[in-house]
Design a protein around this nucleic acid. Structure first.
Lengths: 103, 103
DNA sequence: AAGGTATACTAAGGATTTCTTAGTAAGCAA
DNA sequence: TTGCTTACTAAGAAATCCTTAGTATACCTT
């Protein structure tokens, strides 16, 4: 991996917002208390990448969509997070609004 | 991995829209012509998961953001894609609009 | 200062996953 | 049928992650 993923930055952002330690988040994930801290730290430092299953459970605990972890810019991350809390009709309204912005 | 990721569905969606074969997309990625088809098929069938570097290059070729591959619902995928084409001021305007939708 | 605790972080090898190789299968056109 | 295209797959080699066993730093408390 020559390019680094946005996961480390987004993960730290969402974890600290919830005021959780790496150890605590790892245990909420269901990791062994023995290695919860080590694994979470490896993810947050970009040493290793969590698989989709792990990412999905992290997203649920941190109340963000999985796509949030892959947003490369902060503004886009904020939008993806906000969109995720909308219902289907609101999402349709949003798509219509974006069309008006394009011109 | 017990839960399957949205990557296979999103990848096929974006590839067919560009009217590319798995072989062609693999070669555009810079894979060896020998195994371009095999690897792209493994990604698209969910047999294996591409790393971030690969996902980023795929995103650039297919003109979608990396986050698009992780959108679990079609409407969210469409929004993420549309948002990616906006400039910074437009993104700010969009965030403001989402605030008005919440009530 | 010394000892204890909390949090973040890391090396290294065993465990697991991906990538490469070498193909098969299905559809279609000549 | 034959040839060509596209999609797809098994299996071993190669790369990555997970577990273990710690270290480092900061901050209390005595």
């Amino acid at each position: 991996m020559s390019l680094i993923s946005p996961i480390p930055v987004r993960l730290k952002e969402a974890r600290t917002r919830k005021e959780l330690t790496q150890q605590q988040l790892g245990e909420l994930l269901g990791l062994e208390p023995n290695n919860a801290s080590a694994r979470m730290n490896q993810y947050e430092r970009g040493k290793h990448t969590p698989d989709f299953d792990t990412l999905k459970r992290l997203a649920d605990i941190l109340e963000v969509p999985v796509a949030y972890f892959y947003c490369e810019d902060k503004l886009e991350a904020a939008i993806v997070e906000a969109v995720h809390r909308l219902g289907p009709e609101q999402k349709l309204a949003l798509l219509a609004f974006i069309e008006t912005l394009k011109s």
